[in-house]
């Protein structure tokens, strides 16, 4: 005879396989690279003692610092551009009629579900020296010589904004949609014009979702490496590219780990700030 008290425990045990899995393959894996980052490079792909801070000291070199700054700047610009383009878009979607809204949402979600590589690849095709964009501009007489579009920092930024914008629009959209319309009406009733009502009520009240969306676009942007790979070539070495290079070309696992730990720390700082500002983790997902 089982008592209900034991069953309460039993139900909780249902979360055990998942917890073990997550601890093993997420928590331990992360702890392992933190540990690795303090070791020296060993034979082949291995690490060995002694414990050292060399990996972190090596990052003081100008190439790495430049790359870190570039990554942060691009991630920041990406989040900013996403906000400037994404908020009006989300606002617009939330204000359309329900039927149109469903279709607009599908159109926003669909690229989100298609491979990012494909979409970036589309840009690459567009940007190519004798590609459609240049051809079109040339034939319209706007430019005389083909523009150098590909392999520039701007191309990378376009690609990143493009890849990240759904992550911005969706949470902000649901934030605006959840907003009680009568609150905005109340502010109008109390004498605020449409613009003032937006800035004094709508915007502050949707701020939590904007914050979540910013975090959601900023964090992945620091770590992305394939967009700069495809659109930036060797001109834009982002932190992600540096990690990838150290790992796969130099096969220096401890140093790559140290670089990742820096990225992880940055992520944690952003998340911590986000939590401090009152955001919760779950609202970050859709």
């Amino acid at each position: 005879m089982k008592t209900t008290r034991e069953q309460g425990r039993g139900r909780m045990l249902a979360a055990l396989p998942m917890s073990i899995w997550a601890v093993l393959f997420v928590a331990l894996a992360l702890l392992y690279i933190i540990g690795l980052s303090f070791l020296s490079r060993g034979e082949g792909f291995d690490a060995q003692l002694p414990i050292t801070f060399d990996n972190y000291l090596r990052m003081a070199a100008p190439t790495y610092l430049k790359s870190l700054l570039l990554s942060l700047r691009l991630a920041f610009l990406t989040a900013l551009c996403c906000a400037l383009l994404g908020y009006p878009l989300a606002y617009f979607i939330a204000k359309t009629s329900p039927r149109v809204r469903t279709w607009l949402l599908i159109l926003i979600i669909a690229p989100f579900w298609t491979n990012a590589l494909i979409r970036i690849y589309g840009w690459k095709t567009l940007f190519i020296a004798n590609g459609p964009l240049n051809t079109a501009l040339l034939s319209l007489g706007i430019i005389e010589k083909p523009l150098r579009l590909l392999y520039t920092e701007k191309a990378v930024l376009v690609g990143m904004v493009y890849a990240m914008i759904p992550f911005f629009v969706l949470p902000v959209y649901s934030g605006i949609e959840r907003l009680d319309g009568s609150i905005v009406e109340a502010s109008r009733d109390l004498g605020a014009g449409p613009v003032r009502a937006f800035f004094t009520v709508t915007l502050p009240m949707t701020m939590p979702s904007v914050l979540a969306a910013l975090v959601l676009t900023f964090i992945p942007s620091i770590g992305l490496f394939f967009i700069s790979d495809l659109l930036g070539g060797s001109n834009t070495m982002l932190w992600g590219n540096v990690i990838q290079n150290e790992l796969l070309k130099s096969r220096d696992l401890p140093f790559a780990s140290a670089l990742s730990v820096v990225l992880l720390t940055l992520t944690c700082i952003v998340l911590a700030v986000y939590r401090k500002l009152g955001g919760d983790a779950e609202s970050m997902v859709f």
């Binding site: 917890s19 894996a29 690279i33």
Partner: peptide, 22 residues
């Protein structure tokens, strides 16, 4: 475990990739 399970979609994928590789 719950916290850990949520991490893969909160931190950059790159880190997850490297951590698992290691």
């Amino acid at each position: 475990g719950e916290q850990a399970a949520m991490l893969p979609i909160m931190i950059p994928e790159l880190i997850m990739g490297i951590a698992l590789l290691a």
